[in-house]
Amino acid sequence: MIEASGLTKRYGERLAVDQLTFAVRPGQVTGFLGPNGAGKSTTMRMILGLDAPTAGSVTIDGKPLAAMAHPMREVGALLDAKAIHGGRSAYNHLLCLAQTNDLPKSRVAEVLELVGLSDVARKRSKGFSLGMGQRLGIAGALLGDPKVLMFDEPVNGLDPEGILWIRNLMKGLASEGRTVFVSSHLMSEMENTADHLIVIGQGRLISDCTVQEFIDRNSALQVRVRTTEPEKLAELVDTAGGRAKPGADGTLLVSGLDLTQVGDLAFDNGVRIHELSPLQASLEQAFMELTKDSVEFHATVPAAQLASADGKVEAGS
């Protein structure tokens, strides 16, 4: 279990992490979400003792990492797949890590096998692809068979196969009772992997709940209706206390009433219905909505506008 209490990091004038208090529990995947620059990596570095907090504290199973007899048996982390010496072979990279914690050499071969890098174990990691580098980083994190695992944006730049592999790995690790803490700036990734979510924006805690709670709380359920008489149904919905607005290609989007209520309303009033389906606002939308005030850098010109401006220049010249 990772416990942060009032965790704060200040870089000069900028407050990167602001009074974060949260707990990451074992047996589940906890997603650490926030827009770029929200303070996720800084928080993870403080958990590992790489950066010292300006205020507050963070412990792993009640102790700072440096106090552990064998730190690698407690925590394995992949912060940055490039945080390795490219001139060293995969085997030697893992060996020098294993030796610091008196782990046997045989374990190095074991984790190389586990991540599928046995064939390139003697190759210098300089020539590794992004995916292979990521696997090497994960091999390093798994060396000590740790109780707590931390991954910072592990799927960035990976191909679909790699993403699936990491996703299954994280779920597998959590199902073995380990604490898995994984950061991402993509809600869609967490939706498929995480059980619990910690959302931060501009260094502050925005939300700390299960994924289901996050969905329930942040995405209003809508009902999509396709009908021959949209005006009539809209009126009926209004009277029944719901709200209806026209959706794409002649459909009606109803909120405030659930699926059964809308169906009954139509049946009772003889409105013919061709489609009746529940619509859930995606978590991505909910996440964007939640963090829109805390995004550090806003694009001032929407991409579409930029594209049309380009077109105009061409047309004018």
């Binding site: 003792g49 440096a66 552990m68 730190p71 912060l79 490039k82 890590l97 390093g140």
Partner: peptide
């Protein structure tokens, strides 16, 4: 070279 490559973060995580 530990700093140039970023290896220092990996080194200090395994032995804080």
């Amino acid at each position: 070279s530990e700093y140039a490559t970023g290896m220092i973060r990996t080194s200090l995580t395994s032995m804080p």
